[in-house]
């Protein structure tokens, strides 16, 4: 039965890819990429990689679909016809693909439990992490403690991405206080989507509550700072989509978001510095408390908080930058 599910999911995945290549409408392609992400997330669940499935659904199906749609508004939704012949690219791609397939022939047998990939460091994590770190979700132990340095690098990459986005796209400054009464008058005249606005307002507290649950439940189940940050950002994306960019900018000013994005990285790196000052290695949480295991717990909670703050504020800020381009005259429209 599980084999049947795996085969049909992979079959649908490859059909989606073929359709993406053949379609000319960029909007349809973005929609199909959403399906692609949902399918691959489902495959990750079937493979028991629930944390990865969480991230794939959040980033692939959620955030990147929204950002790609915002990009389409500025670029137009039809693919340009290429005048050049596609023979040479096809040849190169075929040769590369054949070389890659040839390379897989030397790989160890698929699914064999004795493969080197399963015994390089995984044995130690599985055997020692319940005593050394003592949290049920081993993925979080590896991500936040054993590989804490790598995760710090990932958070810095996310932060750098925000710097890149903001240096290319500028976030619109919200209208000054003097204009506000007129704007409110306008908005009263044409409230665009009252049903959606009420629904968004009712849902927002629950989305934020769910984000906090994912943030602090990451030690016990699938989740953690990255996923929680995305869910937190989704709440504000929903608010922006229904209420407009001006209201969202008034709710979360860009200057605050920039400070929070940097602050999250600071919390993460600061934890490392504190552990150094207490006599341990960089990001060695054992020294944070008198008991090494509870020190690990404190360290993981703190750095996951830093990750969540950075990811949430970076995504919200990048979304505002895209929205500034996509819906430039929304303030006047209402």
């Amino acid at each position: 039965m599980e084999l049947l599910v795996n085969i049909s999911l992979l079959f649908m995945l490859s059909l989606t890819v073929i359709a993406v290549v053949r379609l000319k409408s960029l909007f349809a392609i973005v929609m199909l990429f959403g399906i692609y992400s949902l399918l691959s997330a489902m495959i990750f669940i079937a493979l028991d990689a629930v944390d990865v499935a969480f991230t794939e659904a959040a980033v692939g199906a959620g955030i990147s679909t929204v950002l790609m749609l915002a990009t389409l508004v500025t670029t137009g939704r039809w693919e340009k016809k290429s005048s050049r012949s596609s023979f040479l690219p096809l040849l190169i791609v075929s040769i590369t693909g054949a070389a890659l397939v040839w390379g897989t022939l030397d790989m160890p047998e698929y699914g064999n439990p004795d493969n080197p990939a399963h015994h390089h460091v995984a044995d130690r994590y599985i055997e020692q992490s319940p005593e050394e770190i003592g949290i049920p979700n081993m993925v979080t132990s590896v991500l936040a403690s054993y590989r804490g340095f790598d995760t710090l690098g990932e958070v810095i990459v996310v932060f750098t991405a925000l710097i890149g986005v903001l240096s290319l796209l500028q976030v619109r400054t919200p209208p000054s206080v003097a204009e506000t009464p007129l704007r409110n008058e306008n908005r009263k005249l044409s409230r665009p989507y009252p049903v959606l606005q009420v629904v968004a307002l009712v849902m927002m507290p629950f989305i934020i509550l769910f984000a906090l649950y994912v943030q602090f439940h990451g030690d016990f189940g699938p989740g953690g700072g990255f996923q929680a940050g995305v869910i937190f950002a989704v709440a504000f994306i929903l608010y922006t989509l229904t209420y407009g960019l001006d209201d969202a900018l008034a709710l979360t000013p860009v200057s605050v978001l920039k400070a929070l994005a940097a602050g999250g990285v600071l919390i993460y790196g600061g934890t490392g510095v504190v552990s150094m000052l207490l006599g341990g290695n960089f990001l060695d949480y054992n020294v944070l408390s008198s008991n090494p295991v509870s020190g690990q717990h404190i360290g993981i909670i703190v750095i996951e908080l830093g990750v969540g703050i950075t990811v949430a504020s970076v995504l919200i800020c990048a979304f505002y930058a895209f929205m500034t381009r996509a819906l430039p005259d929304q303030g006047q429209k209402g």
Partner: peptide, 16 residues
């Protein structure tokens, strides 16, 4: 609880 999240993403994606 992953299902809740997928439903949420789906809802926001369609609105977008």
């Amino acid at each position: 609880d992953l299902g809740i999240f997928y439903a949420l993403i789906n809802f926001v994606g369609v609105i977008a």
